[in-house]
Design a protein around this nucleic acid. Structure first.
Lengths: 339, 339
DNA sequence: TTGAAAGCGCTAACAC
DNA sequence: GTGTTAGCGCTTTCAA
C-alpha cells in the first residue's frame, strides 16, 4: 500500500466522475442507489479513507468545535467534557481539546492553534494565569461563536455558563457560622478570576450579615500545589481560625490531613468546607462538606448554547449568562458532634 | 471584517508574489530581511492568520500527533499527557487529544477520526472495552508510527512503553505476605488487558513462591464505578480475606472507606495495597501503600520514541518494548502496628 | 442523475 | 532573492 486512495482512484476504477463519487460517499440526494452501492464497495476495496483536511478546506468549515480547558486532571472538568461530548456527538461534531495547565501563555498558544485549525465554535474556561482575553478576538472578529464556562471573563459582552458562585460562597460560610464556627479562614486562588472573586464576596457578605468581623489575615490565595497548601494552612493557623472554607476539594483534603497531623480534630476542633464535590470528598475521614458543581450539566448547557448559535446565526449578538443550579452538600467535616 | 485575509491579499497589497509571502511568513532561507519585515507588517495590518488546513493539505503532513487515551480523569493519564506535551512542544508539534472513556466503540471512532485528520504519528493507550486492534491498521498500512503505552496490545509487532506489571504485582503481594497477611483478595479489571493480566500473574506467583494457596473466590474483576467496587468488596469479604491488593488507588480508597464503615481496622484487621500512586493515597487515612507508576516519564519516553521514528524512517520496523522503572511505596495501609 | 470545471489557501519545484 | 505554475483532495456550482 504505497499511496492513499482518493476519490479520483475510485472514479477511475468505476469509470465515473469524482463528483459523483463525492456525492455518493456523502449520501447526497439525487444519486442512484446503485451508484452509491458500487462506490461504497469500491471505496472499501481500494482502502479509501476520507481526507478531512481537503474536505474542510473546501467547505470552509470543520464540523469541529474547539475546547480550551484550564486543566484536565479534575473531576469537574472531565464531567464538563463528558457533557459537551454528549451533545456534540449527537450533533455530529468533533472536539478539538486543548489544555492550558493553568498557564496563560499556553492558553494563548492554544487559542491561536485552535483558531488556525478553523473550528466552527469554541468552548472555553480561562486558566488562572490568563490576564486578558485578547487572544479570543480572532474568534469574535470572524464571528465564530464562543461560549465560556466556569472561569469566564468579567465583561458582559460574551456568553457564559456558570453557577452562582457568590451564593455558593455565602451559603457555605453561613452554614459554618450556623454550626458554631466564628473565626473562619478562607483559602482560595487568584481573586482576579471570577469564580474565586465571587466566592470570596459571598464569604464576606455572610460574615457581615452575621455580624462577624472580616479579618484580612484569615485569607490566603494559594496554588494547587500540595506544599503551598500546607504552608498556607500553617500560616493561617497562627491566627487561630476555628474553620476553613476552601475553594477546592483537593486543597480541603490536604488541609484536613495537615490538621490531623497537628492533632486537631475535624469537625470538633475545627471545621472544613470544600468546593466542587469531587469524589475525593466522599473518601476521606471525616467526609467533606462541599459545594456541588454539576459538571456534566454545565457542559451540556454550554454545548447546547453553542449549537444554538451555530444554527441561528442571527442571535449571535445576544450575550447572556446561563446559571446552572448548585447547592451545598453537608457531610461530616463541618458539623460538630453533639454532646 | 468580512472575509479572512489570505497570502494573496498580502501579495496583492505589496505587489509581490504569494510564494514570497509564504516564504517570508515561514522564515524560509533566501528571502531578503526587508521583504520578511514588510510581509509580516502587512500580515498584521490585514489581520492575516495562517490556515493550517490548507497548509497541511499541501504539505501532506500536519505537524500533529494524535493521542488516543483510555480516560482523562486520572492523575496517571494527565501526568503522561504532560510528559508527552513537554517533548512535543520542544519538537514543534501539536497534539490532537481524543478520549475513549474506556469505551471500545468510541476508541474505534476516535482512531478513524484522528486518522482522517492526517496526524503524523499516534500515541495510544487501549480502552478497557477494546477487543482487538484492527482500528489501528490504517496507521500501520500507511506507515504512520504508533507508540502504545500502559494499556498495550498483546502482540509483539508494535512499539510499547510500559512498566513491569508482573513484578509490581508480585512485589505488592510479597510485601503483604511478609507483613503477615495470608489470605489476600485481589480486585482488578478486565484480565484481557495486559496491565491487569500481568499484575494478576505477579500476584499468583508471589502466593505460590510463599507456599500460599491460590483461591479463585478471592479474585474480583470490577469496574471503576463506586457502587460496583463496594459490592465487590462485600462479596470478597464473605470469603474472609485479611488483605486486599487492588489495581487502582481509587478503588482501594473506596474499599478502605467500606471497611471502615464495617468497623474493620486498616491495617491491623485487614491490609490494603493500591496501584498507581495517585495523590489520593496520600490524603486518606490510613495512608495508602501503592505502586509508583511514573506517568510523566512514561509520556516522555513514548513521545521521544515516536519522534525517533518520525526522524529515522528506516527503523520503523524495529518493534520494541520500553520498560519504565517503577517501585512499590510502603505507607500505612499495609503494615500492622507493632504491639 | 451525472459530469466538467473551478477553486478552497497554501507550498514547492523550477525558472530566472 | 523572487515569480510562475501546478496541485494537495475535496465539494459545488453549472450544465447536460
Amino acid at each position: 500500500m504505497a499511496k492513499e486512495a482518493t476519490i479520483y482512484d475510485i472514479a477511475a476504477h468505476l469509470n465515473i466522475s469524482a463528483a459523483t463519487v463525492s456525492r455518493a460517499l456523502n449520501n447526497k440526494p439525487r444519486v442512484k442507489q446503485k451508484t452509491i452501492d458500487k462506490v461504497k464497495k469500491a471505496a472499501g476495496e481500494l482502502g479509501y479513507r476520507h481526507n478531512m483536511l481537503a474536505s474542510n478546506l473546501r467547505r470552509q468549515t470543520s464540523k469541529t468545535i474547539g475546547l480550551l480547558l484550564h486543566e484536565l486532571n479534575s473531576n469537574f472538568v472531565t464531567s464538563v467534557l463528558s457533557g459537551i461530548e454528549k451533545v456534540a456527538t449527537a450533533e455530529g461534531y468533533d472536539l478539538l481539546i486543548a489544555h492550558s495547565a493553568e498557564d496563560g501563555l499556553r492558553e494563548i498558544a492554544n487559542a491561536k492553534n485552535i483558531f488556525s485549525k478553523r473550528v466552527d465554535g469554541l468552548i472555553a474556561s480561562l486558566a488562572l494565569g490568563t490576564k486578558n482575553i485578547e487572544h479570543f478576538t480572532p474568534f469574535f472578529e470572524r464571528k465564530i461563536p464562543v461560549v465560556f464556562f466556569d472561569r469566564v471573563p468579567d465583561t458582559d459582552n460574551c456568553i457564559k455558563v456558570v453557577i452562582d458562585n457568590y451564593k455558593a460562597g455565602y451559603d457555605a460560610t453561613a452554614h459554618l457560622i450556623q454550626n458554631g464556627y466564628r473565626h473562619i479562614a478562607h483559602i482560595t486562588a487568584e481573586l482576579s478570576r471570577n469564580v474565586y472573586n465571587e466566592r470570596y464576596k459571598g464569604y464576606k457578605s455572610a460574615l457581615q450579615d452575621h455580624h462577624l468581623p472580616f479579618d484580612e489575615s484569615l485569607i490566603s490565595v494559594c496554588s494547587r500545589n500540595k506544599e503551598d497548601i500546607v504552608k498556607s494552612v500553617n500560616q493561617l493557623l497562627e491566627h487561630r481560625p476555628d474553620a476553613f472554607f476552601i475553594t477546592n476539594d483537593f486543597a480541603a483534603a490536604v488541609c484536613m490531613a495537615e490538621l490531623k497531623k497537628k492533632g486537631l480534630r475535624v469537625p470538633d476542633d475545627i471545621g472544613v468546607f470544600g468546593f466542587n464535590n469531587d469524589i475525593l470528598g466522599d473518601l476521606i475521614t471525616p467526609l467533606l462538606s462541599t459545594v456541588d458543581y454539576p459538571g456534566s450539566q454545565t457542559g451540556e448547557a454550554a454545548a447546547r448554547e453553542l449549537f444554538n448559535l451555530l444554527k441561528y446565526e442571527d442571535n449571535k449578538e445576544t450575550y447572556k449568562k446561563i446559571i446552572i443550579p448548585s447547592k451545598i452538600i453537608i457531610r461530616e467535616s463541618s458539623v460538630k458532634h453533639k454532646r
